[in-house]
Design a protein around this nucleic acid. Sequence first.
DNA 1: GCGCTTTTGACAATCATTATCATTGTCAGC
DNA 2: GCTGACAATGATAATGATTGTCAAAAGCGC
Lengths: 134, 134
Amino acid sequence: MNIDSTAQRNTKQRSAVSAVLNETEGFNSAQDLHAILRDRGERVGLTTVYRTLQGLADAGEIDVMRPPGGEHLYRRCSQGHHHHLVCRSCGRAVEVEGPAVESWADRVAAKHGFVDVSHTMEIFGTCPECAAKR
Amino acid sequence: MNIDSTAQRNTKQRSAVSAVLNETEGFNSAQDLHAILRDRGERVGLTTVYRTLQGLADAGEIDVMRPPGGEHLYRRCSQGHHHHLVCRSCGRAVEVEGPAVESWADRVAAKHGFVDVSHTMEIFGTCPECAAKR
DNA sequence: GCGCTTTTGACAATCATTATCATTGTCAGC
DNA sequence: GCTGACAATGATAATGATTGTCAAAAGCGC
């Protein structure tokens, strides 16, 4: 029997994926991460990358985003609940907090009798640099 | 010349898809809609369903949602910008408005110099009926 | 070191969505 | 009401990210 079911083992692959996430700045797709690991000479299977990312996401250590019409993107984020302001053009992401939004979502859901509430929010736009280039 | 570039033609298929969207209540996937049309005896290709839905979505006549780990869902919605409170269990969706959220998103984006801003938000929860059943 | 258990990873399978392209249906002008 | 140009359709194949499979290869506790 186990109270916490997170009986994870430390493996090179897990560390490698985590390391890449630490060093990269913006969001990366699973395939991107796999390619990066490949370039570094780390021998990690694509399947393992996916599994590791899922695990980290479940553990709340990384953030997942599903941009419209694209693949899943992963990023190591600061702890706690927050949202992202993402540049449509260059992919740069800014973490933003909105306590007002959180409470609004909870309030609305409660008003309709919904329980076990979660929410997702992404803001898309063009960042100043990209806007200037055009 | 044409001020609006939507030079769409009226076809039976387009009407059929639109009709189904009018009659169904919650969110439907493209494949669901295709199945419904099939059952009705309407002969509409899956490709056309996808194309029609895309067109309607672009025109802002229907709403698209990308639930975590699922396919795209479409629904005819009231005009104007709004968000959805969706039941995780039965799929029932409630339209909600949050002017505070809109302005917050715009404000945050502006503060970081982002332009041409849009955003997406979905609230997930368990509706009272489904919560009671458990 | 030993053995049990988890993890890995090459490959195949899945599945929603998109591209292709010849055929068909619409609409505008006559 | 015809007709012809051109958009729309749809059966099928292609795409591509993600997931399943399962034998082989590490970890970890002893």
